[in-house]
Amino acid sequence: MLEVKDLHVTVEDKAILKGLNLTINAGEIHAIMGPNGAGKSTLSAVIAGKDGYEVTQGTILFEGQDVLEMEIEERARAGLLLGFQYPIEIPGVKNIYLLKAALNAQRAARGEGEIPAPEFMKLVREKSAEMKLDPSFLQRAVNEGFSGGEKKRNEILQMLVLQPKLAMLDEIDSGLDIDAMKVVASGVNSLRSADRAILLVTHYQRLLNHIEPDRVHVLVDGRIVKSGDKELALELEARGYDWVLEESAA
């Protein structure tokens, strides 16, 4: 589904990713872990097309398409969505406007007509309930005045409505208490299916107690230096990152 090859990225002339390789297949959940400053957030941001990142080398293919040639909105419509670590407040734009406009844009890209209003209303009410968000949330401006936990649940609500093929979640667990974490994790788990994939970027292992990854990668200094199954996350939790650094330096 996603193939990242030899990806080099600079931000303001500073090299952040230095030859990253990653393949994600449909049906899989991958977790990217690593110390602060390793380039974890850069990877998902580049895939989503955020400004300010310069790809100097390498390719990103999504279902065979060259992602780097696609506009931001084309990537989203193709099924690549990024849940932000710091969701952006959009004063005055109601959640409901964003959800409907986004869903219809995606349908239009697939050559489908607009979603009928009753169907849409049923969908968003169901998904809001799953995320334990009161329906009044739909009338509120996107992220404006939301608590940290509400912002994160709102990111997942967008995922549940838009059903991306590849959901990338950047530090979705930061700032969450245990109850909010469970709600967020159950939302993410409900996205899990044989034809979809999920990429989790996280600093801490605790999220992975709730969302079980198929593959865990350790990103250090712009490269994936170690990959393993979920046991690797537990080992990192217990031993920290130093041993991986030493191993990779060796």
Binding site: A48, G49, K50, D51, E71, I72, E73, A76, R77, L81, L82, F84, P87, I88, E89, I90, P91, G92, V93, Y97, L98, A101, A102, A105, Q106, A109, A141, V142, Q158, L162
Partner: peptide
Amino acid sequence: DAVYALRSRGIDEPMARALLTLAFV
């Protein structure tokens, strides 16, 4: 930033700008 946030959800740029104009009002 808000234009980007909307585009990142698949909303094209003119529509994103329209939504933000409505929000301003």
